[in-house]
Nucleic acid binder design. Structure first.
Lengths: 123, 123
DNA sequence: CAGCATCCAAGAAGATACTG
DNA sequence: CAGTATCTTCTTGGATGCTG
């Protein structure tokens, strides 16, 4: 019985491997904000402006399953849960820092690049 | 005439800005391979294993529209076209290098993290 | 070779309402 | 507060076939 029930598809390079972890509309942002320290659910939701409960929870669960973040439930009432980076996640966030900085340093260029596209492309 | 035809939604941070440029299933990989030098269409397609013409062209057009890459058509027959990074794109790729390295250095950890998830989650 | 057009499937994401 | 559940919508992406 060859248990090749859908191969995970091999990585084509290191970047590809990294992307398997951070793919998801909000994952990079979640990691970015957790990089600033442990956060409670509600706090995180406020930081990642625009995310819905559904997506936030879903991504959080995946990141936890991948060993990138750690969830702590204090079993209190009212509920208190917080999320923090694991050492693995921490190293990932560090690898993302240059991309954050690039965005910070090129905000205006990016904004106008995105606008330029809109003009010729009205989808 | 108030020309606010659908606001682009403001960036919530630098990373968010960066993501607007590199979001797309294959974009980071395209940039990564172009980081190794100019490439012809077919060459790129071979590098980015698994991508379809449709997606490759679509992403290439967007990246070009955003000023990240430069397309050169030699107007020859048979057709010859190549793609290369613009200086802007070059700086972006440099910012991505740490993520590539992270993936290279953690390939096995990532692979098992992805497997671990599959077991408890058979969706 | 490089690329476009069309159709279609899958999945990601959003809105809304509800719970311990 | 921190989620869950369900439904619907929208975007993404893949397969295929055609063209200069």
């Amino acid at each position: 019985m060859t248990e090749e029930t859908s191969e995970p598809a091999p990585f084509i390079c290191g970047l590809d491997a990294t992307l398997r972890i951070v793919s998801g509309k909000w994952k990079p942002l979640i990691l970015f904000f957790l990089g600033k320290g442990p956060k409670r659910y509600g706090e995180l939701k406020r930081d990642v402006r625009g995310v819905s409960d559904k997506m936030l929870i879903q991504h959080l669960k995946e990141l936890e399953a991948h060993g990138v973040i750690v969830r702590t439930d204090y079993h209190e009432i009212p509920p208190r849960v917080d999320y923090m980076l694991s050492p693995f996640g921490q190293s990932l966030v560090e690898a993302m820092v240059p991309m954050c900085r690039w965005g910070e340093n090129n905000t205006e260029a990016i904004a106008s690049a995105l606008k330029a596209q809109m003009k010729g492309d009205a989808r």
